[in-house]
């Protein structure tokens, strides 16, 4: 345990002025009513503030990925409600959720999920294709982002020709391509080396400085010091939250 941290129990929902995301009694049950039913999330409620750096901590299998997938609007809860800017998005249609993801959310998957047959810049610009943006402009935007995260010399590489850290940065560039205000990263330090991790932290700090809200699932304590708040997830339950001492 790092001694700059101070833990407080904080399970009750506080109403906040700068509330961005609110989850209210979220359940996620896989294979419901079947013998192999899994209660991945059980009655989880919390609020994420605008512009904050939030970490969901918990051991593997505790439900972190499931939770951030619901927040990122790429999965639906089995029960409970999720709000964005006070709007209930739980029952949004497929189309509305797609548009929400496009405009508001950048998701960086644990295994990055780059399209293997596309080059780095094509992966970055893929989210722009359905918006009718010309290839020239798409490429320009992708190059800008790849340059920003220090990958301008890897633009034409295929994902398999990139290291884990480089793949992750391509995935981050892709998450940023629509200029969303919410960036979600699933276990961002699990598939990269130490150097790439420190580079990642710099990138995340930069994004936070730009005013973006950052949500991370991770059990990497090295990241905690950067967080504004850490939610503890255990066996699908929200076991509490705490604020690292540096922020108090």
């Amino acid at each position: 345990m790092i001694d700059t941290e101070h833990r407080t129990q904080n399970t009750e929902l506080r109403s906040q002025d700068n509330e961005l995301i609110r989850c209210d009694g979220i359940w996620k049950i896989y294979n419901e009513a079947k013998p192999h039913e899994v209660r991945a999330l059980v009655d989880v409620s919390f609020v994420v503030e605008k512009g904050s750096f939030t970490i969901f901590n918990g051991p593997s299998g505790s439900g972190k990925t499931t939770l951030i997938s619901i927040i990122g609007a790429i999965d639906r809860p089995s029960r409970g409600r999720a709000y964005l800017d006070g709007k209930d998005i739980t029952d949004f249609s497929d189309v509305t959720l797609s548009l929400l993801r496009r405009k508001r959310i950048g998701f960086v998957f644990q295994n990055f999920n780059l399209v293997p047959r596309l080059s780095a810049w094509e992966n970055v610009s893929a989210p722009l294709i359905p918006q009718g943006i010309r290839e020239k402009d798409r490429k320009y935007r992708a190059m800008q982002l790849l340059d920003k995260i220090g990958l301008s010399d890897r633009v034409h590489h295929a994902p398999e020709e990139l290291s884990g850290g480089e793949q992750q940065r391509v995935a981050i560039a892709r998450a940023l391509v629509n200029n969303p205000d919410i960036i979600i990263l699933d276990e961002p330090t699990s598939n990269i080396d130490v150097e790439a991790a420190s580079l990642l932290i710099d990138i995340l700090k930069g994004l936070k400085a730009e005013g973006k809200t950052i949500l991370i699932s991770s059990h990497d304590e090295g990241l905690f010091v950067n967080a504004d708040i850490i939610f503890e997830i255990r066996h699908g339950h929200l076991a509490g939250s705490w604020v690292p001492l540096v922020h108090r």
Partner: peptide
């Protein structure tokens, strides 16, 4: 992946 990054069906 495409849908997660904002493509519609």
């Amino acid at each position: 992946i495409l849908k997660a990054t904002g493509w519609q069906t």
